[in-house]
Design a protein around this nucleic acid. Structure first.
Length: 829
RNA sequence: GCGGGCGUGCUGGAAUCUAGGCAUACAGGCCAGGCUUAGAACCUGGUGCUCGAAAGAGCUUGAGGGUUCGAAUCCCUCCGCCCGCACCA
C-alpha cells in the first residue's frame, strides 16, 4: 500500500490543471462559450502582495475556491479571477529605506504570492490576471478619473484635510481611525490644502438606499449606514442683527427651537474672528481658537471631557420667538458636520446641557417628559424623549412629533428655514503626495488652468526617480523632465500634477477589468461586463466594510450613470470571513505568531491546509490556529487515501449495491446518500463548511467500521466503492487534489467533469426510526418504530416499553402528545 | 452612552436559534486495549457532571424568572466577553 504523499499527488493535478487551462473560461462570443449555462462570478478581495501569505489569506481563497468548484459542478459557468493590488505605501516605505525601486520589490512579492497560490491549487483563471501598477491597467484608472472629471465628480478644492506627518501625505477621512493614521498609527494633523476629491456625497442617498437591494451581512450594512449618517431635519437661520450676519444651523429637532437659550460656533468657523473683533472677549477667543485647532482630533473626540468654550460677546435672534440669545465658541461643535454652528437646547440635549451647567446658562423645558428613566436632575432634564410641548407659545399642548413638521413649514413661509438632510459622509479625498501610485492625468497651464489630458495621451506613465523620500510634496515633483510638459489645449508650458491617486481608486474597479483584462481599446467591453456582472459572491475581510466596499459601490453607480455598465451594485452577495488568530491574538510579525501558509502546505500539503481552515469552525467566525487540529484533518485525509488504496486492491468494479436493502451494505449506501444531502445543504446554507466536512468524516467512519464485512461480496464491494467515490466527490471543493486522485482511482473519471451528485430520496428515508418516548418531558426510552406508523401505533409502542412502564405505572396519564415520525410525550400525574 | 453579535463538555465546535421535540455530531485532548523487542504511525473502545459495584437515578447549554406537554432555541431581568459607532446637532 502506498503512503499518502500530498506533495506528489498535488503536483500531478496542478500540472494537469495548468497544462489544460482547466479553470479558464471564455467570454460571450469567444470560442468555447456556453450560452446555455448560467453564469457565476466568484471573487475574493484583491490581495496586496507583501511578503509571504499567511493562513489568514489562505482562508479567504479556500472559501472562495470551494464556492467556485461547487458552482461549476452544479452547471454554472464560473469566472474566478485573481490579480494584485500593487501600488501602495509598504513598497514605497521599503524603497525609502533600501533604495530598491518599489516596482522591483512589488513584482518580487507578486511572484511569491503567485507561487504560493499555485502550490495551493486554487482554481483561478490566470488568463485574466491583472496588477494595478501596470500601465495596461492604470491607463484605465486614469481614464475613469477623466470620466469622473468630465462629469464633475472629480474636482480640486481647498479644504481642511487630515495630514499624516509620518507618511507625509493627506489621508481620506476613512483612513483616520481615532485621530490616528490607519497605516502608521501616528496622530494626524489638520491642514488646509488644495486637493483632489471625488464627489461621493452626490451618491449618499443611493449608497444608503441600495443597501436594501444587496445580500450582505447585516453588520456590514449597518456600518455603511452609520458611516453615511443621513439625518433628516431642518436648516434654521439665526441672525446676528448687530453685524448683519446670518447663521444657518442644522437641527434634527426643530420641535425644540423654543428651548434654544444660547448659540455655539465651532472654533474653525470662518466668522468667529469677525464676531469677536472689537469685543472685550477678542483676545480670549483668539487664544481659545488657536488651542482648539492645534489639539488633535483624538483629544477633541473624547466625550467624557469637560465642556470648554468662550463667549463671543454677541447675540443672535431666535427666529421662532425673536429672543436674543448669547453666542459662544466651543470645540464640542464640529466644523465638519452641518454648518459648523448649532442652536443649543440644554433642556433636551445632553451636550448642550453639560455646557449650560458649566457656564451657568439658562435651561428651559419645552417638552414634558413622561419617562422617569430619562431624568438626570431634579427637573427631569435634559430630556431627549417625546412628549407634549410647553413654553412654546402657539405650539403648547401639541405632541412634539406633530409640531416638528408644522414648525418647519412655518419657518419656510417666514423665509428663515427649510427642511434639510445632512450626511456624515464627506467627499473622498483621492490625491496623495506619494510616488508609488497611479499618476493623476491632469496638467496645470498658466493660461488654461487645470487641464485634463485627452484620452489619447494616456497612460501618463509613472516616471523613474532616484529619491523616494517624501518632502511634503510628491517625490514626482523632482522628476523635472516629466513634470514640465506642454498644455494639450494651448501648447504652452504646463506642469503635470505630481500627486498620485489613493490606492483605493485602483481597487474600486478591478472586478470590471477582469472581465476583459487584455482590451487595449477600452477599459472593458460592455457585452462582457453585462454578461458577468454583478459579482455573485464576493469574499473578504470585514476590515474593508467601509472603505473599499463603499468606494467600489460609488464607482459602479457613477459608471452606470455614464452608461458604461448596466448594474447598480458591484457585489450582489458578500461573505466576510472571520480572522484566524494564534494563541488568541491577531497574527502579526511583531508578535512573532504568524503561521505561514507555505510552511503549512510544505508540512501537510495544500489539501490539509485548505480543508483545515474550512473545518476550524463556521467560516464567518474567527478561530484559533492549533497545530494539533491540523493534524486531525491530515489524519482524516490520510484515512481517505488508505481506504482508496484498499478498495482498489481488494474490490472489483461492476457490482451493484442498489439491491441491498438491509445489513452493512445498505447502511453504508444510506450513509453515502445522507452525506451527499448534508454536504449539499451545508454549502448552500450560509457556508456551513465545517459541518459539511464533518459529514464526510462521518461517512468515512462508517465505511471504516463496516468495510471488512463488505469485502468479498459484489453488493458489499459496490457499497464501499460508492462510499469512497462519494466521499471524494463531495470533499472536492475543500481538498481538490486528493479528491481528484481518489475519484479517478475508483471511477476512472475526473471529478470536476462530473456533475455534483444528487442523493437518492428513497435512500434518505429509512423505513424505521427511533421513536423518542418522554414522560413529563423527560426522555425515558428510544423505541424502534416503522416510519409510517400512525398515532395509535406509536402510542401502543411507547406504552409497551418497559422503561416507560416503570415511569407511568401507578400514575394517571392525563395527556398524550404524539409527533409522528419523532416522539411521544406522556404527561402523568 | 448608542447599535450589533456572542456565552453549550477539558478545548474548537454540533444540534435548519430563521420551524421549540434524543443536548454535546465531527475534531482535538485524555484514558484503556490491540499491533510492536520498544517507540512512532495505525486500529478498536471509552470519555458532560454527581451518586452507584451495576442496573439505574438525579443534575446540566453564563445567572435568575416566565410561556409550553416539552426550551440551548421564544419572552423578561441581570452578569460577562467581542465588534462597530461615538460631542454628528
Amino acid at each position: 500500500m502506498l503512503r499518502y504523499d500530498p506533495a506528489q499527488i498535488e503536483a500531478r493535478w496542478r500540472r494537469i490543471w495548468d497544462e489544460e487551462h482547466t479553470w479558464e473560461v471564455p467570454n460571450p462570443g469567444q470560442p468555447g462559450f456556453d450560452d446555455s449555462a448560467p453564469k457565476c462570478y466568484v471573487l475574493e478581495m484583491l490581495p496586496y502582495p507583501s511578503g509571504d501569505p499567511h493562513v489568514g489569506h489562505l482562508k479567504n481563497y479556500a472559501i472562495g475556491d470551494a464556492i467556485a468548484h461547487y458552482r461549476r459542478r452544479n452547471g454554472f459557468q464560473v469566472v474566478h479571477p485573481m490579480g494584485f493590488d500593487a501600488f501602495g505605501l509598504p513598497a514605497e516605505n521599503n524603497a525609502i529605506k533600501t533604495g530598491e525601486p518599489p516596482r522591483v520589490a512589488t513584482e518580487r512579492s507578486i511572484d511569491a504570492y503567485k507561487k504560493a497560490f499555485d502550490r495551493l491549487g486554487f482554481s483561478f483563471d490566470w488568463a485574466r490576471e491583472l496588477s494595478s501598477h501596470e500601465p495596461s491597467y492604470y491607463r484605465w484608472t486614469q481614464w475613469i478619473f477623466l470620466k469622473l472629471f468630465e462629469r464633475g465628480l472629480a474636482y480640486r478644492d481647498e479644504a481642511l484635510v487630515q495630514w499624516c506627518p509620518f507618511d507625509q501625505t493627506v489621508l481620506a477621512n476613512e483612513q483616520v481611525i481615532d485621530g490616528r493614521c490607519e497605516r502608521c498609527g501616528n496622530l494626524v494633523e489638520v491642514r488646509e490644502l488644495e486637493q483632489w476629491f471625488f464627489r461621493i456625497t452626490d451618491y449618499a442617498d443611493r449608497l444608503l438606499d441600495d443597501l436594501d437591494t444587496i445580500d450582505w451581512p447585516e453588520h456590514v450594512k449597518t456600518m455603511q449606514r452609520n458611516w453615511i449618517g443621513r439625518s433628516h431635519g431642518a436648516e434654521v437661520i439665526f441672525r446676528c442683527e448687530e453685524l448683519g450676519i446670518e447663521f444657518p444651523v442644522f437641527t434634527t429637532r426643530p420641535d425644540t427651537l423654543f428651548g434654544a437659550t444660547f448659540f455655539v460656533l465651532a472654533p474653525e468657523h470662518h466668522d468667529v474672528e469677525r464676531l469677536a473683533a472689537g469685543t472685550e472677549h477678542e483676545d480670549a477667543v483668539r487664544q481659545y481658537v488657536n488651542e482648539a485647532i492645534r489639539a488633535s482630533a483624538e483629544e477633541r473626540g473624547a466625550m467624557e471631557r469637560e465642556k470648554t468654550g468662550v463667549p463671543l460677546g454677541r447675540a443672535v435672534t431666535n427666529p421662532v420667538n425673536g429672543e436674543e440669545i448669547p453666542m459662544f465658541v466651543a470645540d464640542y461643535v464640529l466644523m465638519e458636520y452641518g454648518t459648523g454652528a448649532i442652536m443649543a437646547v440644554p433642556g433636551h440635549d445632553d451636550r448642550d446641557y453639560a455646557f449650560a451647567t458649566a457656564f451657568d446658562l439658562p435651561i428651559l423645558r419645552v417638552i414634558e417628559g413622561t419617562d422617569p428613566e430619562e431624568a438626570q436632575d431634579d427637573d427631569g432634564l435634559p430630556y431627549s424623549g417625546d412628549g407634549e410641548m410647553v413654553n412654546s407659545e402657539r405650539f403648547d399642548g401639541k405632541h412634539n412629533r406633530e409640531a416638528h413638521d408644522e414648525i418647519v413649514s412655518w419657518l419656510e413661509s417666514e423665509g428663515c428655514g427649510k427642511p434639510a438632510v445632512h450626511y456624515r459622509l464627506r467627499d473622498w479625498l483621492v490625491s496623495r503626495q506619494r510616488y508609488w501610485g497611479c499618476p493623476i492625468p491632469v496638467v496645470y497651464c498658466e493660461t488654461d488652468g487645470i487641464v485634463p489630458l485627452p484620452e489619447d495621451h494616456l497612460p501618463v506613465l509613472l516616471p523613474e526617480v532616484d529619491d523616494y523620500a517624501p518632502k511634503g510634496q510628491s517625490p514626482l515633483a523632482a522628476a523635472t523632465d516629466w513634470v514640465n510638459t506642454e498644455c494639450p489645449k494651448c501648447g504652452g508650458p504646463a506642469r503635470r500634477e505630481t500627486d498620485t491617486m489613493d490606492t483605493f481608486v485602483d481597487s474600486s474597479w478591478y472586478f470590471l477589468r477582469y472581465l476583459d483584462a487584455h482590451n487595449d481599446e477600452a477599459a472593458w467591453d460592455r457585452a462582457a461586463v453585462d454578461y458577468w456582472m454583478p459579482v455573485d459572491q464576493y469574499i473578504g475581510g470585514v476590515e474593508h466594510a467601509i472603505l473599499h466596499l463603499m468606494y467600489a459601490r460609488f464607482f459602479v453607480k457613477a459608471l452606470a450613470d455614464m452608461d458604461f455598465l448596466g448594474v447598480q451594485e458591484p457585489f450582489a452577495r458578500l461573505f466576510t470571513q472571520g480572522m484566524i488568530t494564534r494563541d488568541g491574538a491577531k497574527m502579526s510579525s511583531s508578535k512573532g505568531n504568524v503561521v505561514s501558509a507555505s510552511e503549512t502546505v510544505e508540512r501537510y500539503g495544500a489539501d490539509t491546509a485548505r480543508a483545515y481552515v474550512c473545518f476550524m469552525g463556521p467560516p464567518d467566525k474567527g478561530g484559533d490556529w492549533t497545530d494539533k487540529s491540523v493534524e486531525g484533518v491530515h489524519r482524516f485525509l490520510t484515512r481517505l487515501w488508505r481506504l482508496k488504496e484498499e478498495v482498489v486492491e481488494r474490490t472489483s468494479p461492476g457490482g451493484d449495491a442498489d439491491g441491498a436493502t438491509q445489513g452493512p451494505a445498505a447502511e453504508l449506501l444510506r450513509k453515502s446518500h445522507w452525506a451527499i444531502d448534508k454536504v449539499t445543504r451545508d454549502i448552500e446554507r450560509d457556508f456551513g463548511f465545517n459541518t459539511a466536512i464533518a459529514a464526510v468524516m462521518e461517512l468515512l467512519n462508517v465505511a471504516y467500521t463496516r468495510k471488512d464485512d463488505l469485502y468479498g461480496n459484489p453488493a458489499g464491494e459496490a457499497a464501499v466503492r460508492f462510499a469512497t467515490q462519494t466521499a471524494a466527490s463531495i470533499l472536492f471543493p475543500f481538498a481538490p487534489h486528493l479528491s481528484a486522485e481518489v475519484y479517478e482511482a475508483i471511477t476512472g473519471r475526473r471529478v470536476w467533469e462530473d456533475a455534483w451528485p444528487k442523493p437518492d430520496p428513497a435512500l434518505l428515508e429509512s423505513d424505521v426510526f427511533t421513536l423518542v418516548v418522554q414522560v413529563n418531558g423527560k426522555r425515558r426510552a428510544g423505541v424502534e418504530a416503522p416510519a409510517g406508523a400512525s398515532r395509535d401505533e406509536l402510542l401502543d409502542l411507547a406504552l409497551s416499553d418497559t422503561a416507560v412502564r416503570r415511569h407511568i405505572d401507578g400514575k394517571q396519564v392525563v395527556k398524550e402528545i404524539v409527533v409522528p415520525g419523532k416522539l411521544v410525550n406522556l404527561v402523568v400525574k
